[in-house]
């Protein structure tokens, strides 16, 4: 029912692609990150929480149909529904069923509840398409609440030393996740323009966030003291950061599990916080679907596919895609023009 071609993941019967990387007529989008929701499709279908972000990033004039979790639509006899993927707010797995054959395209996902996205839901199927960004047993992420506690403690400590705290988290998803767990009683929270734009969409459409202030011309540098500043990783090494001096720099990413990556980032602290599944979660996710055919996309594809074949005797194979997953240097949001913040402080 599903094939992989040069445009993306394709269901010929329904005439629809899932997260295609080339312009096609009809595309179902798992979530609004730029490597999955690309520009140029004639018609889009996505979860209703992804729609405002897609309109904001791809243009307000795109043709897009919104769907809720569990809502079923039919395309030429193929029953299609979206189910929570737990990756970021609005992220979905796509379930396709026809004549008793069931496929699930999971996009990016994590099982661990992050307290902001609707939690991952296992969907039984025969064919499961999974990512493998952290598909090696060295990736075992800590419980997310303990990481948020570490972040708040780090903020308190920096503040006590008379320093600001700058934290890198990509604008869509991770930034809202981090902000929602900050303790606003510690001090002021400022945001980079790219983060603030997405925050507004989140607050309008989904939920509550602690009060934050956008860094722009109205902000007085004197007011930024012992503060927390949330910025996308693309702000790294930019003159934009200078105004926060003296500051400590933290990075939130699953890659921070490795000391080498942590040190290469040149950050003071690396927080192991990812929106992807770690090794344990990937294994659980695959097993819970009950699928016997597994297609492994972006990440440690060959290793994870080999492991699934060896350990569980599943029919697992690698699939080439253009998804990037969580990047060590997190260029995920780089292509977005809204990351360039030229607003300055007087």
């Amino acid at each position: 029912m599903i094939t992989f071609n040069d445009n993306g993941i394709y269901c010929a019967r329904a005439g629809v692609y899932i997260d295609p990387w080339k312009p096609v007529d009809r595309a179902i989008i798992t979530h609004a990150h730029s490597d999955h929701a690309r520009w140029g499709m004639k018609h889009y279908l996505a979860h209703h929480l992804s729609v405002p972000v897609m309109k904001y990033r791809l243009g307000s004039d795109i043709s897009v149909q919104a769907l809720g979790y569990g809502e079923v639509i039919e395309m030429n006899g193929v029953k299609i529904s979206l189910h929570p993927a737990g990756h970021i707010w609005g992220s979905a797995q796509v379930r396709l069923e026809c004549n008793g054959e069931i496929w699930v395209v999971s996009g990016d996902y994590k099982i661990a509840d992050d307290g902001i996205s609707q939690a991952f839901e296992p969907v039984p199927c025969q064919h499961f398409i999974t990512e493998s960004t952290f598909g090696l047993p060295i990736y075992n992420f800590p419980a997310h609440q303990s990481v948020h506690d570490d972040i708040n403690n780090w903020w308190r400590q920096n503040q006590a030393e008379g320093k600001n705290s700058v934290l890198f988290a990509y604008a869509l998803g991770k930034a809202q996740r981090v902000i929602s767990h900050l303790d606003p009683s510690i001090g002021k929270i400022f945001t980079h323009g790219a983060v603030d734009n997405v925050n507004k969409l989140y607050i309008e459409n989904d939920g509550y966030l602690p009060a934050t202030q956008r860094i722009d011309a109205t902000v007085d540098k004197k007011d930024i003291q012992g503060a927390m500043i949330i910025a996308p990783p693309s702000a790294s090494n930019s003159p934009w950061l200078r105004r926060f001096e003296p500051y400590k720099l933290g990075v939130c990413s699953g890659w921070m599990q490795l000391r080498g990556t942590r040190r290469r980032q040149g950050a003071d602290r690396g927080f192991v916080l990812s929106d992807h599944a770690d090794w344990g979660q990937l294994n659980v996710a695959v097993k819970e679907t009950g699928a016997s055919h597994i297609y492994v996309t972006h990440g440690y594809k060959s290793h994870f596919a080999r492991w699934l074949t060896d350990a569980y005797h599943l029919n697992a194979r690698e699939v080439e895609t253009l998804y990037t997953g969580e990047q060590a240097d997190d260029t995920l949001d780089l292509e977005q023009a809204d990351n360039k913040s030229d607003e300055s402080i007087q």
Partner: peptide, 13 residues
Amino acid sequence: MPSWLFAESYHMV
């Protein structure tokens, strides 16, 4: 753990 998986992990770390 299979030795190939251990080796791949080591190469990554």
